[in-house]
Simulated scan of single mutants.
Amino acid sequence: MERILYMALYATSIVRVVWGGDSEITLFLKHIHVLPDCAAVDAVDFLNVTYESGAFANKGKELTPTEVKNQPIIDWNSKDSFFYTLMMIHSETTPECIKTLTKECQFHHWLVVNISGNDVSSGDIISEYLSSGPSKGTGLHLYVFLLYKQPRELEFEEKFINRYSMAGRSNFSVGDFSEKYNLGLPLASNYYVAQYDDYVPIVHAQIGY
C-alpha cells in the first residue's frame, strides 16, 4: 500500500498524515516510531487538549509558547476503575529525529501517572508541566501528548521534577518508559507544533537555560 505523508513542519502550521486503513493519529505515531509499523491496534483516539488561553492541540496545528504557557485541561473517554499515564514530549524536527525519534531527540515536558479515570489532578506527578520553549531561529518544534492505560496502580521509581528544572527531562525514551512499566501502546494522543515567540525567554529563565 502506498503511503502518502505530508509533514510540513517547516513551512505550514498543520501536520497532515494520510494512510488508507489507519487513523491519522495512528499513522502519525507509527511515523515517529511511538508505534511499530507492524502494530495491529485499533485506531488511536485524539486527546482533547485545551489551554486556558483558548488554544487547543489539533493534529499538528501551530500554537505559540504564549498560548501554551499554562498546564492544559486534558479530557478523554475513560473508566473510573482504570489508571492512566499521561505524558507530553518534545522532539526536534530535524529529519533524523522525525524519522527515528531516538532517545537523544526526546525531552519530556510533563509526566503524570496513576491518574484515576480522566481526573488528571488525581494522579501522581513525576514531572510538572513545562511550557514549550523553542530557541530563536530553530523553526517549528513538535510536541506530542500520549495517554496510556496502566495495568493497575503502579509504583514508579522516577524522581520528581518541578517546573523550574530541566534535570532528568532530556534523553527521555517513550518506548523504554512504556516497556519498563508494561504500559503497552497508547490509547490516545494529540500534537501541535510551536516556534519561538516573546514568551520563550521567560521559560528559559524559569529553568535556568
Score class of each variant (00 low, 15 high):
37 D>H: 02
37 D>R: 08
38 C>I: 10
38 C>P: 00
39 A>R: 02
39 A>Q: 09
40 A>C: 02
40 A>W: 01
40 A>Q: 11
41 V>H: 04
44 V>Y: 05
45 D>M: 03
45 D>L: 10
45 D>A: 14
46 F>N: 14
47 L>N: 03
47 L>A: 04
47 L>I: 02
48 N>M: 08
49 V>M: 08
50 T>W: 06
51 Y>W: 15
53 S>V: 08
53 S>R: 03
54 G>N: 10
56 F>G: 01
58 N>L: 10
58 N>C: 05
58 N>E: 11
58 N>R: 09
60 G>Y: 08
61 K>D: 04
62 E>H: 13
63 L>W: 03
63 L>K: 04
64 T>D: 12
64 T>I: 08
65 P>M: 06
68 V>T: 15
70 N>I: 05
70 N>C: 10
71 Q>H: 01
73 I>E: 14
73 I>D: 11
74 I>Q: 01
75 D>R: 12
75 D>H: 13
75 D>I: 00
76 W>R: 06
76 W>T: 06
76 W>Q: 05
77 N>L: 14
78 S>H: 13
78 S>W: 05
78 S>V: 01
78 S>I: 07
78 S>Q: 05
78 S>P: 07
78 S>T: 14
79 K>N: 12
79 K>R: 09
80 D>T: 09
80 D>R: 12
80 D>E: 15
81 S>G: 00
81 S>I: 01
81 S>T: 12
82 F>G: 02
82 F>N: 14
82 F>Y: 13
83 F>Q: 09
84 Y>I: 03
84 Y>M: 05
85 T>D: 04
86 L>K: 02
88 M>H: 09
88 M>A: 09
88 M>R: 14
88 M>Q: 14
89 I>K: 02
89 I>Q: 01
91 S>L: 14
92 E>S: 15
92 E>P: 01
92 E>G: 15
94 T>S: 15
94 T>D: 12
95 P>E: 08
95 P>L: 07
96 E>P: 00
97 C>I: 06
98 I>A: 05
98 I>G: 04
98 I>Q: 11
98 I>V: 15
99 K>Q: 13
100 T>H: 13
102 T>V: 05
104 E>M: 04
105 C>P: 07
105 C>D: 10
105 C>Q: 08
110 W>N: 10
113 V>C: 14
113 V>G: 01
114 N>E: 00
114 N>L: 00
115 I>C: 10
115 I>Y: 10
116 S>T: 12
117 G>L: 07
118 N>S: 15
118 N>A: 14
119 D>N: 15
123 G>L: 07
123 G>C: 08
123 G>Y: 06
124 D>P: 00
126 I>W: 05
127 S>A: 14
127 S>P: 00
127 S>Y: 13
127 S>V: 08
128 E>Y: 00
129 Y>N: 06
129 Y>E: 07
129 Y>H: 06
129 Y>W: 10
130 L>V: 12
130 L>W: 05
131 S>C: 12
